[in-house]
Design a protein around this nucleic acid. Structure first.
Lengths: 179, 179, 179, 179
DNA sequence: TATGAATGAGATTTCATTCAT
DNA sequence: AATGAATGAAATCTCATTCAT
C-alpha cells in the first residue's frame, strides 16, 4: 500500500497506479481525482468506525464486562491494523484544516458520545465531567493503538489490549473488584 | 502562522515568506530548504518537550503530588497551545515514514521512559506492564490535549487538565485516597 | 447535438457516443477517428453548399429576380439553421490552419465564383472588381446568417432574408427600380 | 505567434513558452492558466475594437464622407492584420458557447449600435430595418476582412477597402452621387 | 457487429529552489 | 544581506483510441 510508505502527499498517482498495475487513465476512470480515492478509502474506515462505536459494550465492574471491553479493544486494534495505511494518511489530513479534519472530528465525536452514554450508566458516576473523561479515554485508545500499529513503539496486540482494558476498567470503576 | 491553516504540505514557501514579509531569497539565506525550517521549528518544540519530560514530577497518592501533576499537565497544554501549528505539522509528518517520524518516536520514547521511571517508584506497582501503561497515559495526554488545542473538541484548559490529572491519579494509584 | 454546445474540441468522443447511445467501439467501427466523423458531417454540409452555390439564380433588376434571390437566401438560412452545429464547428476549424480550413476556403471560392459569374451577366457592370464584391456579399450573407442562427443577434429569418435581399439588390443594381 | 499556426486548442503551453523563450513557471507567474492568457489577448483586441466602433465617422453621400469611411475600413483592416492570430482564436472561441462567445456578441453589438445610429442620421432612411441592415454590413466588413487577412482569399488591402467602401456607400445612399 | 473497461501519450499546472541584481 | 523574477522537474489530469470479449 502506497499510502503506508509515504502518506497522502508522498503517494503519487504514478505510484498508486503502478502498485495497482493499472494506468493513469484507469485511475481517473474510477476516481475523479487523487483526493477522491482518499475519500473513498476513508469512507470505508469511517463505516467500520461507526459500527465499532455502536458496538461499544455496556460496561460494568464485572468479569464479563471486562472481557467484552477487551474484545472491543481487540477489534479496534484489528481495524487499525488492517487499515493503518489509510489511518496514517487520515491522521496526516486531520493535522490540516479542511473537510477531512471535519470528518475526523465527527468520528471522534461519535466515539465520545457512545462512551459518555456508557459512563452515564455507571453508579456511582466515576468522574465529574464525563465528556472530558470520554475524550481522554478515546484519545488513549486511539493513539496508543496507532503508535503500536505503525510501529512507533514496540508493543504487541495482546499486551496493548490487556493494559488498555485494565486502565479503562480502573478509570471507570476505580479499584472496584471485578465480580 | 501558515502551518496552522494548511499543515506542512499545504504551507507553500511563497505563503511562508509572504506571512513573514520576507523574500524567497532571504528564506534560503537562513534555511537551506523548506524541511530545514520545519526541522528548526520542531527542534524548539523538541527542546521544550525534553525539558517537560524531565520535569515530570515524582508522583504519589498525595494532594501535593496531585497538584504537581496538574501543574505539569497545564504546562503540557500551554506548550501545545503555543506551538500548535508546529505540532499539527509534526503530527502530519509523524503520519508518514521518514526522519520526522523517527524524531517523533524519540520524543514519545522519552516521555514513556520518564513515566515508566515514576511508575517504577510506586509501591506496590500499579500495573503489570509499566511500558504499555506509560504508552497509554502519554497517548491519552498527548492526543486529548491536541484535540482540545486545535479545536476538534470543545474543551477548556482547566477542565481538560483537571480530568486528565484525576484519571492519571486513579490509573496510578487506583482508588487510593489523596493524603 | 454535442458539437452545438461545445464545438469540435469541446465535444469529446465520450459525449458523442453517449448522445448517440452507442459505444466507443461502435464509433470506431464507423469512423476511423474523431476527425473522420467531423469530415463526414462537413461533407454533408459541403454537398448542400455546392448545390446551393449552383442554384444561385440569375439575377436582374426585376421583381422575379428579387423574389428568386429571396428564395435562395431563405434556403441558405435553412441549411445554416439545420446544420448549425456542424457549421459552428467548421467555423472553429476554419479559424485554424489545416485541412478543414482549406476545405472551407474551397467552398467559399465556389460561392464567390458563382456570384462573380452572375455579376458578370449584369449590364452595365455594377462594380470595378467583381471578385472582391462577390467576397463581400458572400461574407455578408454567410456571417449575418451565422450570427442570426446561433443566436448571437436576435434576428428572425424573414427579417434577415428580406434585408439581405434588399441590400444585395441595391449592391448589384444600384438604385434601379425593380421592374 | 503560436495562436496563428494552430489556434487556441492547437497552441500548447509548451509551444507558447518556447516561442516566448520562457519557462512554464514564468508563464504561470503572469497568467493563472492558459485561458487567462487568451482573455488578456482578447481584451487588447476588444479595446481596439471599442475605440474603432466609436470612431465610426458620420456618413453622408459626400466625397469626404466616403473618404472617411475608407479610412475607417483601412483601420479595421490594419487591426485585423495586426491581431489576426488572436482574432482567429477568438473566432474559434465564438464558434463555441461560453464566455468568449458572449464577449464576441458584445463587441458585435457595439458595432451594430454605432452603425444603426449613423444610419438613423440619414434622410431619407435607406432601409426599413436599420438593425438588420447594420448586422449585414458589419458581417460583411468583418468576415471579408477576416478572409483576406488570414489568406483564405487573395485580396489586397486597397482593393478590399475600396470595394467595401463602395458597397457600403451604395447600400447606404443607393445610387446617389458623391458630392 | 457491438461493447466499454482499459490504455498511455501528452497536456496543463505546481512549487521548491536559484541567482543576477 | 536582501530581493523576487525566473526556472524546470515533477506532479496531476485528459481524452482519443484500442482490444478482449
Amino acid at each position: 500500500m502506497v499510502l503506508d510508505r509515504r502518506g497522502y502527499h508522498g503517494a503519487r498517482v504514478d505510484d498508486i497506479v503502478k502498485t495497482a498495475r493499472a494506468s493513469h487513465g484507469t485511475f481517473y476512470l474510477y476516481f475523479s481525482n487523487k483526493e477522491d480515492l482518499f475519500r473513498a478509502l476513508v469512507a470505508d474506515v469511517t463505516e467500520e468506525m461507526r459500527e465499532l462505536a455502536e458496538s461499544l459494550p455496556p460496561v460494568g465492574p464485572t468479569r464479563s464486562g471486562y472481557d467484552e471491553l477487551r474484545g472491543w479493544l481487540g477489534r479496534f486494534y484489528d481495524i487499525y491494523h488492517h487499515y493503518h495505511p489509510v489511518i496514517r494518511a487520515w491522521t496526516e489530513a486531520n493535522a490540516q484544516n479542511g473537510d477531512m479534519a471535519r470528518l475526523g472530528a465527527q468520528v471522534l465525536r461519535r466515539f465520545i458520545d457512545q462512551l459518555v452514554r456508557r459512563v452515564g450508566e455507571i453508579d456511582p458516576p466515576p468522574v465529574a465531567a464525563p465528556e472530558v473523561a470520554a475524550l481522554a479515554m478515546v484519545s488513549m485508545v486511539e493513539r496508543a493503538t496507532f503508535y503500536a500499529v505503525v510501529g512507533m513503539v514496540p508493543v504487541e496486540r495482546e499486551a496493548l489490549v490487556d493494559n488498555l482494558a485494565a486502565i479503562l476498567h480502573v478509570g471507570l470503576f476505580g479499584g472496584r473488584r471485578r465480580r
